[in-house]
């Protein structure tokens, strides 16, 4: 599963970099463009997303056992389709990404990942990365048997 993403500078509107204090997340990989990195291992992990024309940064998953949301960073597509998330009224969102990270491997993402947003009892929104069974290729590459659902491609 995906444990981090990186987003090229050109993917984020300049005005939003300041608003969300994204400059703290700037990384330069070699001589490449500036990128913004979002890792699940952070103390308060967050993810960028586009939802109904708005760029937002929301908490990535949930670690709080008391707010009635699944304690996870991911939402399996099978459970979503089976209706297990129905009571939370999940909304599908687009998580822009240039690269994603899984078990120590950074790999290219052409457009971005799919995610779902749900709201906890304190009306705080959380985003979960949508996942599916990994393809053979993805499993060999990352040694993970689940992969994120990507927009317009399957790795």
């Amino acid at each position: 599963m995906c444990q981090g993403i990186a987003l090229s500078q050109c993917e984020i509107p300049e005005s939003l970099i300041e608003r969300y204090e994204l400059s703290e997340r700037i990384i330069r990989r070699g001589e490449g463009d500036i990128e913004f990195r979002f890792l699940l291992a952070e103390r308060l992990p967050v993810l960028p997303l586009w939802h109904e024309g708005q760029f937002l940064i929301l908490s990535w998953g949930n670690r709080d056992r008391h707010n009635k949301l699944p304690v996870s960073a991911w939402c399996s597509q099978e459970s979503l389709e089976a209706g297990a998330w129905h009571h939370l009224r999940p909304r599908e969102v687009f998580i822009p990404a240039s690269f994603a990270w899984d078990r120590g491997v950074w790999y290219q993402v052409r457009e971005g990942l799919k995610g779902v947003v749900v709201t906890d009892c304190e009306r705080k929104q959380h985003v979960y990365v949508l996942t599916q069974p990994a393809t053979h290729y993805y499993e060999v590459m990352t040694r993970n048997n689940r992969e994120p659902v990507m927009v317009g491609e399957t790795i």
């Binding site: 690269f99 120590g104 950074w106 790999y107 290219q108 290729y137 590459m141």
Partner: peptide, 12 residues
């Protein structure tokens, strides 16, 4: 490869 260069990006 990922151990030698953790920052590498891999492409299909």
């Amino acid at each position: 490869a990922r151990k030698i260069c953790p920052e590498a990006v891999f492409v299909k």
